[in-house]
Design a protein around this nucleic acid. Structure first.
Lengths: 174, 174
DNA sequence: GCATTTTCACCTAGGTGTCAAGTT
DNA sequence: AACTTGACACCTAGGTGAAAATGC
């Protein structure tokens, strides 16, 4: 997932151990399509059937509150798929749906049910955070040029698609 | 360090948490040189003064006995340096000295003194293993062709130096 | 008419030994 | 004469979007 979610965390007990995890939940029960001439996402029917729940447990887990608070916690290794049979532990989503990423801070002594394949437990010892500005719509092909430009300009791995010298290569193989 | 040390571990308590670590200790108090015509390492004086102790804590630490025993534990990310002022956490060694790598299995509740910059604690809760067949001599340039061949043939990153098509490239830049 | 998958050139990031040049 | 360092060609490993191929 790019751009990656990055969060700063405060208020933990420095000596307590925590997991930090992310899941991604549907915003509504709709399927969308992009209407190019109005540059808007429009409802295009009801959502597809639910997919197996997946949780991305941040690879620095387990760590102390102290450690988590000292750094920006980045989710740049989180991967998405539309393959409901995925066995790589990626988060499974439907294409053309709207989603909300959520960050979970889970105290170790309340983590007994934490698993990449089960919903994140809730209740005492678990805090969940949603940032509405991070809602996104899944696609298999980009629907508008602002997104394409953002991806190319900001992601180091897409440097080959930036404007400088754009004409001087990219000859297809026969 | 290549080839990397790889160990299988048995006899742990599956539910206990352990660190696994490696350090590298001098075999003797000598400095060596390689005598080409007899293909042997010969003593060439006394060892250089000791270097700061460094411990490589296996990156899968902390993990349960169960987890450690289920996999081959590989130390392929361990790095060596002859720079006594190294600040990358590499293990510091003298060139032209003989060394013995050691594997340490450290129960979590006895790990209070475990640090990349302190000698590994010893005593209850800590087991140390040495494999004499893994003794090696440090160099900055290879001293014999068997080693060079071993490195090139076995290390995927050295594929470019293998024999096939050896003549067809490797033109130096002007 | 779309949505999705596959292939590919182009990158980042970093692990190899070689060689030239420097140091001791 | 032996040792050390730095630049470099050549790899592995894997993250990009474009375009072609396939599916629905």
């Amino acid at each position: 997932m790019f751009p990656a979610m990055r969060v700063k965390i405060a208020g933990l007990d420095p000596h307590q151990q925590y997991y930090i995890a992310m899941d991604i939940v549907p915003v509504d029960n709709k399927r969308y399509r992009y209407v190019y001439h109005s540059s808007k996402w429009m409802v295009a029917g009801n959502a597809d059937s639910p997919v197996p729940p997946r949780v991305y447990i941040h690879p620095d887990s387990l760590a102390s509150g102290d450690t988590w608070m000292r750094q920006v916690v980045s989710f740049d290794k989180l991967k998405l798929t539309n393959n409901e049979l995925d066995d790589q532990g990626h988060i499974i989503l439907h294409s053309m749906h709207k989603y909300q990423p959520r960050v979970h801070v889970i105290r170790k002594d309340f983590s007994s049910e934490l698993s990449p394949n089960k919903p994140v437990p809730s209740g005492e010892g678990v805090k969940t955070f949603s940032f509405p500005e991070t809602v996104f719509t899944t696609v298999t092909a980009y629907q508008n040029q602002q997104i394409t430009r953002l991806k190319i300009d900001r992601n180091p791995f897409a440097k080959g698609f930036r404007d400088s010298g754009r004409n001087s290569y990219r000859i297809r193989h026969e």
